[in-house]
Design a protein around this nucleic acid. Structure first.
Lengths: 148, 148
DNA sequence: TGACAAAGTTAGTTACAGCTAACTATATTA
DNA sequence: TAATATAGTTAGCTGTAACTAACTTTGTCA
């Protein structure tokens, strides 16, 4: 078989992939200083990360050139973004966490949780929606339960 | 005021605190080689970590001597263990994740999630138990929902 | 009690991930 | 087009966290 083994990417590099993914979605080109700003990191750190991402064939990058995600990089980034969104939605819509807190928690947890947990969280979100449609508002009852 | 500011502890050091906490609970003394074994790390790495924990006044330690947790170290360890247990319980009892998978996921997520998220997860576990007692088996329905 | 094994430490290496300061390339604009 | 500001890179440093190999300490038991 020809399956490209999914390589281990550090939490830090996942953050860079995610940032590039989001920036290119918004504005077509990911510039080094924008990546730096969005991650709260120096421009020099971005250069270092881009070199690593290139080495690992996750991003296409030449000094002073454009940054784009390679195929495997885009897949990895999409995976992280998906985890992020599911986590954030779960925290906000089910647990009732404030958006800002949920955002930060999702940023950290997205690197720590595997596919199985994430898919079950998504299932759970869908389950509560279905139950709600059927007249049983699990989330509403839970939030009331928390008020005590 | 005299509040000792809660210092930042790395995920790695939290793991060491947790290991020492669990070992002392089981067998009264935490030996370096047992810490190494339980974390899957070399003995030399343990020595380095113990030095750091001592510097930060989280553990009492002299070369070739006993290791015990200082007051603040015990508190930090207990916090991590608590997070671990709540996460694991949530993964297993609510999401229906296999125990081994849940164990590993909890190990990683315990360092990433803050107090608010954890306390809401605990609330949720208690909420489903209460609902179940009242005749509405949320978890059972969810697991059935997942089967499709 | 002395030899030996087990436990623990030290020294030195590697890799990652960040930083600042100084340099280079690019792009803008007068 | 030349000056300059902005963007990006490089070099060198720091701190964390792991490793192996070699050494020291401790404890056991013949």
């Amino acid at each position: 078989m020809t399956a490209t083994k999914k390589q281990n990417i550090s939490a830090s590099l996942e953050d860079y992939l995610e940032a590039i993914f989001n920036l290119t979605a918004e504005s077509k080109t990911a510039r080094s200083k924008d990546i730096a700003k969005s991650l709260g990191v120096s421009r020099a750190s971005v250069t270092g990360a881009l070199r690593l991402l290139k080495e690992k064939k996750l991003a296409n990058y030449e000094p002073y050139g454009f940054v784009t995600l390679a195929k495997s990089g885009r897949a990895a980034a999409a995976e992280v973004v998906k985890k992020h969104n599911i986590l954030k939605t779960f925290f906000v819509n089910v647990l009732g966490i404030e958006i800002e807190t949920a955002q930060k928690a999702a940023c950290r947890a997205e690197h720590a949780l595997g596919a199985k947990v994430i898919s079950q969280l998504l299932n759970f979100i869908e389950f509560t929606a279905k139950e709600n449609k059927n007249g049983y508002d699990i989330v509403g009852k839970f939030w009331k339960f928390c008020e005590k």
